[in-house]
Design a protein around this nucleic acid. Structure first.
Lengths: 120, 120
DNA sequence: CAGCATCCTTTTTGATACTG
DNA sequence: CAGTATCAAAAAGGATGCTG
């Protein structure tokens, strides 16, 4: 791809790379749920609420593929699988906390804005 | 929806609310492109790179509906439309910068991890 | 219990051509 | 130039039943 001189190419914006990782509907919530310690699969389904088992499995796998969480399966019957944050996954705590703070501080302003403009 | 006592319900995690706003494939990049001043539609297409006009229009509209950007159309021929961050939109600068920093610091570790595990 | 296989619906993204 | 309309493709989300 070629761009004229003086142009800037943002498509590889690092923020976007981050969002591709935590931008899944449930990725950030899952990381958040794991922040205070390892959890089992079914536990996460309950804690998170509203997520199907299949989608949780998919979300966990993507996080695992990116090295953000560990998966430990115990050879028991019935099966037991525990997920936990890796060191790398822990580095996302701060950015996610920042998003949380932002949403807490400005979420209402956005809802208000939608109200005044008649948005759903 | 009912949850047993002692359970936690994360589905309304604020971080997720934030991600629903900037989690579009192009939303963060667009905000980033507007951070240093108003831009025209075609300008954004060039600056961002890789986005189609239609998708940019859609992205801009969503940001506008949430009160994050302003749209100013000038009654000229040919048409001129300028987009700029609102005050509210500017409050996202910091969270987005944090994601950018995170990606710069840890993006490589993720790629390395994928390599060692044979992921694409 | 955890995961997979199916099947289905919705959402997103995109290419292209047309309009004021 | 900016935006819309249309069509198409892909990805994401989800419901359900089966299996070790």
């Amino acid at each position: 791809m070629t761009l004229a001189a003086g142009t800037v190419f943002y498509a590889d914006c690092p923020a976007r790379a981050a969002i591709e990782i935590i931008g899944d509907k449930w990725a950030a919530v899952t990381l958040f749920a794991l922040a205070d310690g390892p959890k089992r699969h079914g536990e996460l389904v309950t804690l998170i609420g509203g997520i199907s088992r299949k989608v949780l499995t998919h979300t966990l796998r993507r996080l695992q593929e990116n090295g953000l969480i560990d998966r430990q399966a115990f050879a028991e019957a019935p099966p037991r699988v525990e997920y936990s944050l890796t060191e790398l996954g822990r580095t996302l705590d701060e950015p996610i906390r920042m998003l949380t703070t932002w949403a807490r501080e400005h979420g209402e302003a956005i809802l208000d804005y939608r109200d005044t403009t008649g948005r759903p």
